[in-house]
Design a protein around this nucleic acid. Structure first.
Lengths: 187, 187
DNA sequence: CCCTAAACTAAGCGATTGCTTAGAAATAAA
DNA sequence: TTTATTTCTAAGCAATCGCTTAGTTTAGGG
């Protein structure tokens, strides 16, 4: 009994994610979400409770989207080379109409203050730990020293790809490529 | 003739800068600026025209503050070693009460959309070009290949320190130190 | 001492924020 | 077809946003 939803929740969240990705959390208003998602405020709040709910669902969706390249990394069994490819894959992934948007998670970590929204912050930290674990996994495939050394290398690579998330907004493609090259050159 | 200002414009901008640094541009309201600067809205708008004016003046002030460590780098005549020291100096510089705030400029680049505020964006890009030129200068002091190679290395180091601006908010001091170590290890 | 110009206080402007609600429209079971 | 239940539209809520303005206080030159 009763009426059916006239929209697909996954479809509208995809639109929301792209908007958050471009504009950040605070700079995306519910009015903007309305237009981008193609449904009105009542439906947004009915489906996702509040703005934070829309964002958390967007992050979940982001994870499923980025899974295409993290899976490739995980299945590469390719050591450092696989990670280097992941860097390039990430740049391609974060591009929309020749504009680099960075990483949705990184962007938000940089925007939100820890104590202001601990729920979001916790979700974001969990994600970055996951990426680091993938780096550790691939680093172990090559012979790069002790467990501690590998852990440090993973941190180093995390720093580099976090940097790339910002750099991609400022530097051009040639510069980004040589940055990646040098990052892995003497590893 | 007429009354004197009851506040020092440099003093209040220092307070404003610290607030922007902690909270970002959009997440700092004029009401918050009022309280932090210790003057009311009329005085803010009289002295700095608008919120953007307060921010631009804050960035100017930020440059004079960070000058203490960029000058040290410039005068080091120390090649790569000087840059590595700059990385550590920057971390110390960006710390307030054991909390890393990152780089005010980097934070804002990540927050503001290019077309939304081109005046601010232009100012921020100018700053990062200045830092890069300091890296180039010091890299030339060591024998590290052609002008093109040096330029690429400077881009690489820019990427690493941009990363550090974010990493410092997430990773701990030990991790940050080993990131820097690896960044310069095989340079 | 008076007058004028600048700096102050405090109230409030319209616009926008996230969110809610009243009522109409739609759909499936009875 | 009627009835129950949910989704829709559209208007509007209080709070906050950046910013302005009217009216008072302060100070230096004539």
């Amino acid at each position: 009994m009763a009426r059916k939803k006239q929209y697909d929740e996954v479809e509208v969240i995809d639109k929301a994610m792209r908007l958050f990705w471009r504009n950040g959390y605070e700079n995306t208003s519910v009015r903007m979400l309305e237009k981008a998602m193609g449904i009105n405020q009542f439906s947004i709040y009915a489906s996702f409770k509040n703005k934070q709910g829309v964002f958390l669902e967007s992050v979940k969706h982001y994870k499923t989207q980025i899974k295409s390249i993290t899976d490739k990394l995980e299945q590469s069994n390719n050591g450092v080379t696989g990670i280097q490819e992941y860097f390039h894959d990430f740049l391609e992934f974060s591009k929309e109409a020749s504009v680099f948007k960075g990483c949705l998670v990184t962007n938000t970590v940089n925007e939100i203050k820890e104590d202001a929204d601990p729920i979001i912050m916790q979700e974001l930290k969990k994600f970055s730990l996951h990426i680091k674990s993938l780096f550790v996994r691939n680093l172990k495939q090559d012979d790069l020293g002790s467990v501690e050394d590998v852990n440090k290398l993973a941190d180093y690579l995390m720093n580099c790809i976090l940097g790339l998330s910002i750099s991609s907004k400022v530097f051009d493609k040639t510069q980004l490529s040589s940055m990646i090259e040098i990052t892995f050159k003497r590893l």
